[in-house]
Amino acid sequence: MLFLLESPGPMARPDDTVGHGSNPSGLISVDNDDPTAEALWHFRSQARLLTDCVHWNAIPWYIPGGKITSADERQALPLLGELLAMLPRLEAVVPMGRVAQRVWTRYSLATATRYVTLPTWHPAARSLNQPGARDHVAMTCKRSAALLAI
């Protein structure tokens, strides 16, 4: 199962320029000490999706200010292809948020992918505060767990 998010946030930066005494890990990880990682860990845990999951970002580099462009999305496509080549047992992709969904759609249309796709909301607070978003993410994680059980 691939959980495809948008782009790394400031906690993935390798330095301490995010300020406020934060401790960035320099890594893209569900174990980071930030609210988005915590929310995704919670949803996966509730669905008992504790193994066989990979997290990646559609745009795998930090973008200051988060202003992702179409050029960023196009530039990221080959990197997504490289990642998928390293996951021969991958069965499904969960694109989380609009950017991830756009990039995944571009990639899958261009390559005729064979993966089950389960799009849902991004696990950031601003997305999860939308009506029905938390329930949708929870349901998507449960559907993902059911797919892996087959």
Rank of each mutant, 00 (worst) to 15 (best):
W121R: 12
A110S: 12
G65E: 05
K67H: 13
M86L: 11
P131R: 08
R102F: 01
P78D: 11
L84Y: 06
A125S: 13
R74F: 07
V54N: 08
P88I: 08
A85P: 05
H122A: 01
R126M: 14
P64A: 12
T117M: 05
R126E: 15
W121H: 08
I63C: 10
Y62D: 09
H122L: 00
E91Q: 13
W56T: 00
P131K: 03
L77C: 02
Y107V: 01
A85L: 12
W56N: 05
L128Q: 07
S127M: 13
T117G: 03
P119F: 07
S127H: 14
P123N: 06
W121L: 06
Q130V: 15
E82M: 11
G81R: 05
L109P: 02
Q130D: 11
S108G: 08
E91F: 10
T111W: 15
S70Y: 10
A92N: 07
R98S: 12
V103S: 00
V116F: 10
G65C: 06
T113R: 08
A125P: 06
P88C: 07
L84D: 07
G81D: 04
T113F: 02
L83C: 03
T69P: 02
P123R: 05
L118W: 03
E73F: 02
L128R: 00
W56H: 14
A58N: 00
K67V: 08
R74L: 10
N57R: 04
L87P: 00
A100G: 04
V103C: 04
G65S: 08
R106S: 15
L80P: 01
L84A: 06
P123Y: 06
R74H: 13
I63N: 04
T105Q: 15
P78M: 09
I68T: 15
Y62V: 01
V54D: 10
Q101N: 10
T69G: 02
L90N: 02
T120D: 00
V116W: 11
R106C: 04
A124P: 10
W104C: 01
T105L: 11
G81F: 03
A110I: 05
A76H: 04
P95M: 04
N129H: 14
E91N: 12
L79S: 09
M96T: 04
I59T: 01
A100F: 04
R74P: 08
